[in-house]
């Protein structure tokens, strides 16, 4: 189960099972969320897919429908692409109320318009009662890359700065607050949002952004680890500069979680050359989703592949990906 949690287990499943098993057929596959295909006329298309399994289906600030649209939009956006079209696939559990499905579908329509794309093709399957959590959604999307954009995790290089687009931990905590057995009261809402407009604004300020990730499952820690490992660089960040809302910190406190391991659905982390950092930051802050963007750290030569956090006391600690699903603890 943990292999779907977006942590280390997910990465290992891809690396140790899927890629070797796919063999030659996955020769050109990249371990990133979106793959770039170059057409004969030089036009570059980004292609991505994701499947959404969310409990509960509705949570403070959104539902599975918005996640399914924004998730794939954001995967495309992390390559720099502006999304054009999305396919939608539904696996419905027998007995799902039509009203519920209708609300989810309406949310998807509104989300697509907000992201500026069309929902163009789809498929529906129904499984027996007891064989699904109401509804699972798969979306696949294509987008067009602007000329010149070359955004890949392996382009992070020493000296680059690390920028986070806003407050972290909102989505994960909002969803946990409704989980049976854990229920707690909070005004926190999921941050689910499309990031393609933010990325467009960033690229307009600096076409040479080195790397982008959206820290969903596995949180900021997983994104930073992925960049550090792929580029074989070290990443250092200052814990005190992380934008963590007080309520997220509080919830993490009594659940025994670390905010950098908690999922986001409308945030990105950017790796940018130091000369462009201020311009990119200003462009981000001018958008509605990047208002509290902040520089949190930098890419360094030392400790290739490792993410190091500087603590409030001035010491350092290694940051690892979370093991899998985030569970509350007593010790």
């Amino acid at each position: 189960m943990g292999h779907g949690g977006g942590g280390q287990l997910s990465a290992e499943l891809v690396q140790h099972l899927f890629l070797p098993s796919f063999g030659e057929a996955a020769r050109t596959a990249t371990p990133t969320d979106a793959h770039v295909l170059t057409l004969g006329n030089g036009v570059r298309l980004a292609f991505s897919t994701d499947t959404y399994v969310v409990r509960p289906l509705f949570f403070p600030g959104g539902n599975i429908g918005e996640l399914a649209v924004y998730g794939t939009v954001n995967d495309l956006a992390m390559s720099g692409a502006q999304p054009l079209a999305l396919s939608t696939g539904f696996v419905l559990e027998e007995g799902l109320e039509m009203d519920v499905l209708g609300r989810i579908a309406a949310a998807m329509g509104a989300a697509a318009l907000k992201a500026g794309l069309q929902l163009v093709t789809g498929d529906t399957k129904v499984v027996e009662h007891g064989h699904g959590d109401g509804v699972y959604i798969n979306t696949a999307g294509i987008g067009v890359l602007p000329a010149g954009a070359d955004i890949r995790p392996d382009r992070a290089r020493p000296g680059d700065v690390v920028i986070v687009s806003g407050e972290i931990g909102l989505h994960g905590i909002a969803v946990l607050s409704l989980r049976e057995g854990l229920e707690f009261g909070t005004e926190l809402r999921s941050d689910t949002a499309p990031l393609n407009h933010l990325v467009a604004a960033m690229l307009a300020a600096c076409p040479d952004i080195h790397a982008l990730r959206d820290p969903t499952r596995g949180g900021l820690a997983a994104s930073l680890c992925e960049i550090a490992e792929t580029a074989q660089v070290g990443i250092e960040f200052d814990e005190r500069s992380l934008p963590v809302p007080e309520a997220v910190r509080a919830a993490c406190g009594f659940l025994g979680l670390d905010p950098i391991h908690v999922a986001n659905e409308g945030k990105l982390v950017a790796i940018v050359a130091p000369d462009h950092a201020e311009a990119v930051l200003a462009a981000m802050r001018a958008t509605d989703v990047g208002g509290s963007a902040a520089i949190i750290g930098r890419v360094v030569e030392e400790n290739g592949g490792v993410v190091v956090a500087r603590t409030g006391l001035g010491s350092t600690r290694i940051v690892d990906r979370p093991l899998g699903e985030q569970l509350p603890r007593i010790c």
Partner: peptide, 30 residues
């Protein structure tokens, strides 16, 4: 450890004969 977290008692009540309360941990309540 025994993960113990400080919180502020907001509202005290009785549930099934047991003294219970809503406790605020700084923006989240339990």
């Amino acid at each position: 450890m025994c993960l113990g977290v400080p919180g502020k008692v907001l509202e005290v009540r009785s549930e099934q004969g047991t003294r219970m309360a809503t406790v605020d941990f700084g923006g989240v309540t339990k």
